[in-house]
Nucleic acid binder design. Structure first.
Lengths: 224, 224
DNA sequence: AGCGGTCCTAACGAAGCCCTAACGCCGCCG
DNA sequence: CGGCGGCGTTAGGGCTTCGTTAGGACCGCT
């Protein structure tokens, strides 16, 4: 049976994860702190690790580094909305994939399956191509016709939300809530600004977007 | 017994909901704020959630997201006339159904039964097909014979109301109230206008509609 | 302190959408 | 046969939304 180590300090979420994972026949062990996690992993090396970044005792990056020092076990990171910086650091430190809270349990399970299937340390398919662009969400890189495209953190966040919902129309309220957080639901001008930036960097003809589309009065849509 | 969590801040409505739900043998627990709701749901996961969008402490979307982060429990949203934007966002965030205030208690109970029957972890049916059209309500997308059809916000709203009540005759007053809100009950010309737009975009022969039908003096009917 | 980069606000044409009004058409009734 | 009301369609003005540019505030870094 596949052994999963879940590292999560919120009891409710820990419980929910345990139930769901056991329901699909994983052998689950849990830890509430980073040090516990490292100790447990050393005692009985798991096949997969689910790691919340918001731990009380250690930085998520340190936990990843502590594991990566001696094992290639696939690590899936759970990141809250506010930890986007930590998330990037964790991926750089060697995590394999991530899911942003709040997440669908289905999605988490799917990503876990993908990681288990690939076996050891391979990338998921957070790689999306559209037009001349190749977007690697996990590595945070974009190449556009052999060139590198550089995006600011906010641009990344916005693009990420769009790319993760291909073909779906996202209301401006939804986007603002996801990217800027509560309290910015009315800053529509901001959204227009950053959508413009993305188009300028990613569209062949920024004045006539093909992939980053607006539907007046409704919201924006990413069309692969 | 089926457990229902009711999230409602108006005491009278909360009381009415409690009485009616208990009368039909639901096990009811209640919360007056979003944070209470999340806490209660975590402690004793309910089988159904009835959620008012107009809560004092949190945005309805956040509550839905907070639940969807770890559970697939069916969520029915109560939305006031003024929260129509919130309602859409709540559905996008993962709510399963909604009822507009003021509502008939019978209808709410019926929709609750429908959600319970579908059971946990079953999705809505946000995809409807009629004629050459495929309507994806969640993604806000319509394809018509390989082509994309673009609808304005008002057209979407109107179509949504019709599609959610297939085969049912909806009075003009009902439609006007739902789409345009109070104060526009007499703007019949408006309804004719937008019905025409929908027919032009969705019917094979707009002059001889097959799916978007009028019953003179009565109202309109959507025929799948 | 200076500087490059990022983020936010304000402002302004341009485009799109919504509503009102008006005109034909049809069926119904006197 | 003529009036009447409901329906469908078209056209135009007012308003909202969108894309874009410019400028200033706020970092972290040298």
């Amino acid at each position: 049976m596949t052994r999963v180590l879940v590292v999560e300090d919120e009891p409710q979420l820990l419980r929910a994860l345990g139930i769901n994972l056991r329901a699909v026949r994983y052998d689950v062990s849990t830890a509430a702190t980073g040090s516990d996690a490292l100790r447990l992993a050393a005692e009985r090396p798991p096949d997969l690790v689910v790691l919340d970044l918001g731990l009380p005792d250690m930085d998520g990056t340190e936990v990843v580094a502590g594991l990566r020092g001696w094992t290639d076990v696939p690590i899936l990171v759970l990141s809250g909305r506010s930890d986007s910086g930590d998330k990037v650091d964790a991926l750089d430190a060697g995590a394999d994939d991530y899911v942003t809270k709040p997440f669908e349990m289905d999605e988490l399970l799917a990503r876990l399956r993908a990681m288990a299937r690939r076996g050891v340390s391979n990338e998921d398919q957070p790689i999306v191509t559209f037009g001349a662009n190749t977007v690697d969400l996990a590595a945070r890189r974009i190449s556009r016709a052999e060139d590198e495209v550089r995006l600011t953190p906010t641009e990344w966040h916005l693009l990420e939300v769009l790319v993760r919902n291909p073909g779906t129309l996202l209301s401006q309220r939804q986007l603002l809530l996801e990217v800027w957080g509560p309290g910015y639901e009315t800053a529509r001008g901001n959204l227009r600004l950053y959508m413009g930036q993305l188009r300028k960097k990613l569209e062949d003809d920024p004045a006539r977007p093909v992939h980053l589309l607006n539907e007046p009065g409704m919201g924006y849509r990413f069309q692969p």
